[in-house]
Design a protein around this nucleic acid. Sequence first.
DNA 1: AAGTGCCAAATTTTT
DNA 2: TTTGGCACTT
Length: 731
Amino acid sequence: MVSVMNEINHNNHQNKGMTVSLQDLNEPQYQAVTTTEGPVLVIAGAGSGKTRTLVYRVAHLLAQGVHPESILLLTFTRKAAQEMLWRAGILLNDSCKRVVGGTFHGVANTLLRRYGSYLGFSSNFTIIDRSDAEGIVNLLKSSLGLGGKNKQFPTKRVIVNMISGAVNKSIELESLIHEQYGHLSEHVDDILSLRTSYEEFKFNHGLMDYDDLLVNWKRLLAEVPEAREIISGNFKYIMVDEYQDTNLIQADIIRLMAYNHDNVMVVGDDSQSIYSFRGADFYNIMRFPKIFEETTIVKLEENYRSTQPILSLTNDIIRNATEKYTKSLFTSIEGDKKPKVYGARDELAEARFICKKITEFYEGGTEVKEIAVLFRSGFHSYKLEIELASNGFDFEKRGGLKLTESAHMKDVLSFLRVLENPIDNLSWNRILLQLDKVGPKTAQKITQAIINAEDPFQALAEYPVGKAWEKGLKSLAGLFEDLRAKELSPAMLYEIVLDYYQPFFEQIYRDDYPKRQKDLEQLKAIISSYEDLQTFIDDTALDPPETSAAVHAAVEDKLVLSTIHSAKGLEWDVVFVIGLADGRFPHASAELGAQREEERRLLYVAATRAKKRLYLTYPRELMTPDRQFRRVGMSSLLSELRPGLFERIEDTSQGFSFPTTRPETISVSTVKRRKGKRLSLRDFSVGCRVDHPFFGEGEVRKIVQPSTLEIAFNRHGVKSLHVDYAKLKLL
DNA sequence: AAGTGCCAAATTTTT
DNA sequence: TTTGGCACTT
């Protein structure tokens, strides 16, 4: 079973101790939770100790003599599972260590490896992530003659979103397209056939995506009575944290897992449902009492986290929700500091404000790890990151790219993946493309030969070589001979792979391979703790290790920068929510209806992370992707709030002369460009004539700081061009 | 067929 | 900052 137990002891330092004793079980609000028989639904607000009720329930069950291995704790993220069981460990000493816990996907993986043969598939599947899925779709797009010049056709990312969305919401892809992607209706047939090819591709190559894990888990329970008996018989008590984040399939799975005992306890808060893009549906909470008759509903309304002024504001955020089923939270925590709202002139001013405040808090005695900066999207913090770094602040960024999503990591993992699953087309392709003189065409041909052969590795060794790449293919075949020669530990295998890969690595990433080398070494450390290669591969797919910088940071007292999604379930003394500007938050394509409601809940989640102090900030001017500046207003989510609930801070960073000379961040690429006879903005003036290699002659109409020119071309109209990129000549 | 260099466009959130 | 497409060279 997914064993998070082993990791718990190593992670102690990360947790702030929750000191509880068994006597706490007698607190009235937990009585119902711990002593009720049958299904229990706990609806509770932010900071009310939801997870704690789960731990208490486990404690109670164990005290009653329930066998720990018959308790299954399902949580959303692996981190949450670790934290929960660690807490249980404090309460229960060692007996909890045999409680089974993990994520839905992790448990699905284990069960499918063990019982997948009931459904008629091999247990040798490889789990693919989003970018793999996008890769497959891209491949199929061109082979089906879609996309390309047809700019109207949706991108691979949109297609993967659609396919996955249809699965998660349990509706037909076709109706989903009409409902949510109306403008793509004319492509319905193409998209459907693309989906069919995608399913075939995965099936033929032993690949399974995240959705498949859940779908097949459900099928196993629903369609194979024998498997259902065994599996649900094993787990007599099922508990789910963050229930508002489950989708319909997961709700069905829970129903089936408990089909003969109904011992289910779920905990959730409908106001914190922020994963609907992945099919999560907070109606699951409302439906729960209907699915499980005789459900006991427990509401927890006391907040143990935040001060009253913060709570008043967060209550007001959710007050405006069009649909809510909630409770009004109260607290007895003292505090009189109202949340602050700050409108900065631009992103730089916003970043400087944050730096200044952090310094103040630090000097006032707040630990840096008790401060967090939260934002809607990963890239919203770029400016702040630069500013923090130049002021000498250390920080840890959460969310964004995972270690195993980087190209060099995928490269090395591919070798290990084909060892376990020799028909993994994607990985073979990746490996072969590294060879000199082998491109997409050749790689695809060789891959086909390999995966259709009886003995794939022999087929590789015997493949009729072309002169140009004979040497490369032979040495590759030699590598696999070494890898398969005898039983080797994952760590040994990895050593051999690295040895082979190193020269390719230095060639492919010659610009920055020293930086990437650290990642390869980090993986070495991780892999050496595994005895079994398959487990290692599964774990890296389901729970990618963090980048070396983040691992390093976790040990130290560091400021946290995080997307709101990754901050869920955590809390800090001081929280800054940045980028609360129109078009950013709510996200530009989510300004209406249900999507906007989700953005509101997202802000609610962000604001409720704060224990003592809360700052909400926004820039009045943003740089758009094409390097233009655009004035923006305060987020509509903020302007809806009752003014008395927060204080405004005036922008004091104003007041210097025009024209502004901004401190410029000089990247390697700009330095390179400067070396040439590249012109800079001050070489131009309004009205001067220029020549562009493609657009021809034109006249400068406007100069937009820091580096954009608006030029009216004789034949191509008005264009905005970046002075560093456009090859302009002065006439 | 494969590799290289250049330009312009895009950039949600995650198991 | 990264990526995809295109035109050009090997």
